[in-house]
Amino acid sequence: MRNSVRMFASTAGLVGALALAGCGGSDEPAVGTPPAAPTAAQAGGGPVAAEPVDTCALFTPADAATVLGKQGLQPTSRKAEGSLLGGCNYTSADGTGADITARPAKEWDATKKAYNGTPVSGVGKEAVWADKVGLLVLPEGKPYFLHVLVIAKVAPLSLDKDGSITAGKIAAGR
């Protein structure tokens, strides 16, 4: 189980970090390929770019059980650093799970443009799905946006669009 947890955390962290923190990319980046939009951390260093966000409060163990269909999953949180305002992931024994990170709202337009995702209605103020990145959600009235991944399969990596949208609705609604 420990190896599965590490694999998911590494996979989700790599996909999330590279997906939202890169420096250059094409119109259709591969999973884990950095986007064109630089982050605050790249532009100016390591201080937190905005107020940290407790993403584990936005998506609880009960929410993870509902979305993933697996009971007893405990969150692993990531503290704010640079433009990462916080992160939370839930990992099952088989390595599947959910990962939610928050970034400053001022990065929304550039990130959304970099991934050219398909609009998703009914999630936050605005949301887009990109097959190789997951769900990006701009919650109503919040100073951050969320990157939501529900990983259905680790190898090869397979994102669960419906699960990601459900998780995005939950987190954006809090």
Rank of each mutant, 00 (worst) to 15 (best):
A19R: 13
D94T: 02
E107D: 15
P35G: 13
G16V: 00
A30N: 12
T66E: 15
D27V: 11
L136A: 14
W129P: 01
G45E: 01
G25I: 02
R6G: 06
F8P: 03
Y115N: 08
L159E: 05
G124C: 03
N116C: 06
N89K: 02
A43W: 04
G32A: 05
K113W: 05
H147C: 09
T101A: 14
P139R: 13
V31R: 14
K106D: 15
A98M: 10
Q71H: 10
G24F: 13
D54E: 12
T118M: 12
R103P: 02
N89M: 13
D99Y: 15
A171G: 08
L20S: 15
A127Q: 03
E126F: 02
A37M: 07
I165Q: 05
A64F: 03
T96A: 08
Q74H: 04
N89R: 09
T55F: 04
Q71E: 15
R174M: 03
D27C: 09
E126W: 01
V150M: 10
T33Y: 13
T39K: 05
D109N: 15
D131A: 13
A127P: 09
R174F: 07
G122I: 02
K169D: 00
P156Q: 10
A105N: 06
G24I: 06
V15N: 13
L68V: 07
K169Q: 15
A30P: 00
T91W: 13
L146C: 09
N3R: 15
P156L: 06
D131C: 00
F8S: 03
P139C: 07
V148N: 10
A65H: 07
I100D: 12
T11E: 09
A102P: 08
K169G: 14
K106E: 14
G25H: 12
K132W: 00
E107V: 05
F8W: 08
L136R: 05
Q71S: 15
R174S: 08
I100T: 04
C88M: 07
C88P: 05
A114Q: 06
C88Q: 03
N3V: 09
T118E: 15
A64Q: 09
N89I: 07
L138V: 03
G95A: 04
A19Y: 04
K169A: 00
S92T: 10
A43L: 15
T76M: 12
C56Y: 01
P104L: 08
S77P: 06
K125W: 00
A167G: 08
V123A: 08
